[in-house]
Design a protein around this nucleic acid. Sequence first.
RNA 1: CGGGGAGUAGCGCAGUUGGUAGCGCACCGCGUUUGGGACGCGGGGGUCGCGAGUUCGAGUCUCGCCUCUCCGACCA
Length: 581
Amino acid sequence: MRWSQAFVPTLRDDPADAEAWSHKLLVRGGFIRQLATGIYVLLPLAHRTCQKIIHTIRQEMELIGGQEFMMPALHPKEIWEKSGRWETMGSEMFRLRDRKEADLCLGMTHEEIFTHIGGELKSYKQLPQIWFQIQTKFRDEARPKSGILRVREFRMKDAYSFDLDQAGLDHAFDQHHKAYRQIFKRCGLDPMAVEASSGAMGGGDSIEFMVPSDAGEDLVASCGKCGYAANLEKATSELTPVENRDALDTPEKFATPGVGTIEEVAAFKGGAPAGHQIKTLVYVFDGRLVLILMRGDHGLSEQKLLDSVEVGELHPASEEEMQEVLGATPGSLGPLTSQLPAEVDGKKMLILADPALEGRVGMVCGANEDGYHYRGVDIARDVAVDHWLDMREVQSGEGCPYCATPLAVCKTIEIGHIFKLGTRYSKSMGMDVLDQNGKAQNVIMGSYGIGVERLMASVVETSHDEKGIIWPVAIAPYEVVICVLKAKDVEVLEAGERIYDALVAAGIDVILDDRLDNPGVKFKDAELIGIPYQIVVGPRSLKEGQVEIVRRRDGDKREVAIEHAAEEVGEEVVSERKRRA
RNA sequence: CGGGGAGUAGCGCAGUUGGUAGCGCACCGCGUUUGGGACGCGGGGGUCGCGAGUUCGAGUCUCGCCUCUCCGACCA
């Protein structure tokens, strides 16, 4: 490709609304342009990089026996009703009607469709299967952001495994884990593999591949010593024990006018530090009011709570509901049996408590009367806890659950997620095969995803400098750029063209910068778009029969004889192309 | 969904009490220049987000709508 004819619209300034590095650099470098909120055009450079990412993914998937499909983006309502997700997916699903008024949706994932087709598998002899596709997904995200990191239309490699038994699933899961490591490594990433909540997908074990980055939206707790790492939606930690304050024979009510928050109670004379308070939250579980008790200095993880209860939908109660049932507003709520209604809608009010409260005495909590609290509360004696559930959000510095080393919490980007679905979909969609005994068995499934554009953006997030992107060879839009510094000078241009021809003949992806612009423009652009190798052909060194080779990642520069340049760069590029783990 | 902010040339922005719509970069032509975003001269480019209203006159004032963005809620 000749740069003079290439569509590479680089910009001198950052776009005004960009925050994330990947957003700024991909826009400035002429890789992407926004069409609407969360919808982007991939210009030729980005398309080339994504094609290489896809190629890498495809190769590794095929190495573990994956078979690629082409799936429709448009799905009929009926198939999503079978799994129950037409209802549960809510407004994140793009829905539309055809001319016959039939309901359709744009596919946001493909469990249903693959399971539907999987219905044609009839015998255990046909298993295992690994099926995948690399296609566009549509999700009406509530808040797209950070350029291409969180969008409404994107490509995903999603794979589904079908096995007869748990051991088969475990094997498929493990194969995917290894394949993912290869894929990310080849793309120049080294993500953390972390334990994750399986969330709305349902199912068992779930591992996310997370790239640490300030532009990330997920928080991960990790242990630098033993390697434990988990999404904050799932993480647990070892707490340093708290010394109980003095117990009282009976809880003592005291006035706390105008005092509501944990901090205010801690600062109030006669109150108690946050660790000696009971935080009382009120939630609604499928329409039923529930009390959630946390230590005052701890936060609730809604996801951990959701994952540990059998509830379809939960949300915080409104102030009106709290007032009506408990007789007080947030800030004065408490769980004392003596201060709670005996029954709500004919049932005892359910009380869930975090284990950090177990065995605690001398605690302070709200009195269910505005402006009053109790002190000297003994949880075992005074509170009728129904279930103890770990639903606390881990904080940085708390102990690793395995080795007690302080945990670090960092922001990350989720680029891949693998999980064991089990029979969630094969059951609801009626997918089974006959086993050795001729008996029907629900197939056990796994599901495995990688976001293509997000992977590209993650590489930019982790591999750039002030000047621009630094692509690894494997996914660089071009592997080599030849900067012809004085393209008007026929001798110089021809020298560049000879190297260009030699590299093309060697199968190297090369772009010839034959523009008439000044040298500075070419250097800046080459650095901005992040081409791994630059061959500088200028009148100065050409007099000596030399050209300069510059390596983007570390700025390494060397002069070589013009006749050796193509060969030398070509060899280096080829050796870097397929770095496997 | 709640709360802020913003829409003026491809990009970044200015535009006063309402009075002929501007600047930098980019772009086109000619010339000089060519090892770090060069310079001179000459040019092109606008439904001032959309629609109403007030006014002799609206980029500017009023109302409605749309879009984009940030924070929060939500979220494989």
